[in-house]
Amino acid sequence: MFAEHTADTDGIAAPHPCETWPDNGRGFRETLDRIGDKWSVLVIGILSHGPLRFGTLHKRVPGISQRMLTLTLRHLERDGVVSRTVYAEVPPRVEYQLTPLGEGLRATVHALAQWVTDHNEEIENARRRYDTA
């Protein structure tokens, strides 16, 4: 996920990117906290297949409450990752979809999901070993 530290011409390791940010990495941490939480990752992954209405999205995100889905969507909308479109119909129809910024996360989220799928058995075995020790 992070580029490896590279040595400059003096053999000194270059600083990690967030070490050089003006806010000492606060923005980096806030963004990672938002897009890296379990609900956001699931919502981004599901919306990567196209726009969905709230009810359909709620059915497809396993284990999420309506309140948590609402909060997650609001945070992702605030960060510019998801857009909310209200259609002037009776009853009103609201759809959520990834923005171009959110689309940029598609490959990363899918790679993360694939890694979890590929290593789930190993992780479960490690947890069992740890819990019995």
Rank of each mutant, 00 (worst) to 15 (best):
T6W: 02
A13L: 05
P15H: 02
H16M: 01
P17G: 04
P17I: 02
C18L: 07
C18M: 08
C18I: 03
D23I: 09
N24H: 06
G25F: 01
F28Q: 10
F28N: 07
R29S: 07
R34K: 10
I35G: 01
G36E: 09
G36W: 00
D37W: 03
D37K: 01
L42K: 11
V43P: 13
V43M: 13
I44R: 05
G45T: 11
G45D: 15
S48G: 09
H49M: 11
G50K: 02
T56F: 06
T56P: 07
L57Y: 04
R60C: 05
P62F: 06
P62M: 03
G63N: 06
I64E: 14
Q66K: 15
M68F: 04
T70N: 05
L71Q: 11
T72N: 08
R74P: 08
H75V: 15
L76G: 09
E77H: 07
R78Y: 04
D79T: 06
V81G: 14
V81H: 14
V81F: 15
V82G: 05
A88T: 02
E95T: 15
Y96C: 00
Q97C: 06
L98P: 04
P100G: 02
L101H: 04
G102E: 06
G104E: 01
R106C: 10
R106S: 13
T108C: 10
H110S: 13
A111L: 08
A111C: 04
L112S: 12
A113F: 10
W115R: 08
V116H: 12
D118K: 12
H119Q: 13
E121R: 10
E124F: 13
R127T: 04
R127A: 11
R128L: 09
D131W: 08
T132F: 01
